[in-house]
Design a protein around this nucleic acid. Structure first.
Lengths: 204, 204
DNA sequence: ATGTTACCGTAACGCTTGTTACGAAGATCA
DNA sequence: TGATCTTCGTAACAAGCGTTACGGTAACAT
């Protein structure tokens, strides 16, 4: 990393380095030295940008949320119908390519780190609740006449399903290929009566 | 831990200590000294029972699998119908009480540790594939006329859903109470046409 | 060109880690 | 009872950790 005063950009580079170490070497090897090496600098720069290691992790966690949020909002804006938006947003949460699989590994790493870190745990809860509200809103738009209780239950099912298959697919790509994940999602949307192809036939 | 020659029992006590540390302090604080303290002994005993730290983790991971396997087989044997068996087996995989929530945290910790450990990763894949085969067998028994492709897709959906909600519920019990998790599972089984209450009405 | 400021690499600090070696103490058997 | 062997706690080791302090160098204003 060349000498510069662009602090936000440096923070982003270092946060990406955190993700890289987390994805490639795991939480146990997520040291300040490993992050510095991945960013192409020394521990001196890292400790000048962040007061301590925890602040570095917190920033990387927050940036991960911002990044996925931006991607999801773009997908949502681009979708033609509420049901297409729902499917696109859910799909990007699975492990459907190397990038999303990597993201799932990083996400799992942060979740495991949150066990011992109240700030990371609070961030996880805040971000995850926002994520759930987004999916609930999308489900409600996809099935406008559903009662709130059914919207919440189906949204929870879809969230848990995609979150779970992302973790499983990232850890065992051979056993959980992309085609199986997508078929799983489509079958679930179909079973819930949320498939984009046909006209919905009401609840129950 | 008193002086004894019962090696298997000691291995079990130490493995439980690994789970305790993993659940209470997280992967980052999962040190040999912390495990010894949780087991009420010193590092000397730990290192006499296991050649190194990795072997300790591997044994604890294996014992976790054996334990859940035993519980699942008991539930399966006790169930009156295939659909009740399916529901009971899936339910115990969610975070429905402090014990299962704790188990989910431990499971996530091992998954995060597997990123940097090929043996833990291989164990995860082996155990998870066995788990998937079990659920596929239960789904096939619950819907005997389904083609194999649908059985596989629905089983994957149910596995991912329970795995995901267990992680979410363990990390945020307030946002994911037991009642919501159970309603999610029942609604999903109902949507797939696998509810135990009514007569199944065929595929599609 | 020169003085001043900000940036960041270098090197060290105290601490914790996994692992090893040794010795004390309980168990076993003659 | 006493010899022998197993068991495990104690203490130390080198290596790696997060963090700190210092010094050199680039960038900027004058």
């Amino acid at each position: 990393m060349s000498r510069t005063a662009d602090r936000p950009a440096q923070g982003e580079v270092l946060s990406r380095a955190v993700w890289d170490v987390l994805a490639d070497q795991g939480l146990e090897r997520l040291t300040v030295r490993a992050v510095a090496a991945a960013a192409g600098c020394t521990t001196g720069l890292v400790m000048h940008r962040f007061p301590n290691r925890r602040a570095l992790l917190v920033h990387a966690r927050e940036l991960l949320h911002e990044t996925t949020k931006g991607r999801v909002e773009a997908l949502e804006a681009r979708a033609a119908t509420p049901r297409e938006a729902l499917r696109a947003v859910l799909q990007q949460g699975m492990a459907i390519d190397p990038a999303t699989a990597r993201e799932s590994v990083v996400w799992t790493g942060f979740l495991a780190a949150a066990v011992a870190d109240d700030e990371l745990l609070a961030m996880h809860r805040r971000n995850n609740r926002a994520w759930r509200e987004r999916v609930e809103r999308l489900v409600a738009a996809a099935a406008p006449e559903w009662p709130a209780a059914r919207v919440a239950s189906v949204a929870l099912g879809l969230i848990a399903m995609t979150e779970g298959v992302a973790a499983l697919g990232a850890a065992d790509p051979v056993a959980y290929p992309v085609t199986d994940q997508e078929r799983m999602l489509d079958d679930a949307l179909d079973a819930y009566g949320l498939d984009a192809g046909t006209v919905r036939r009401g609840v129950l």
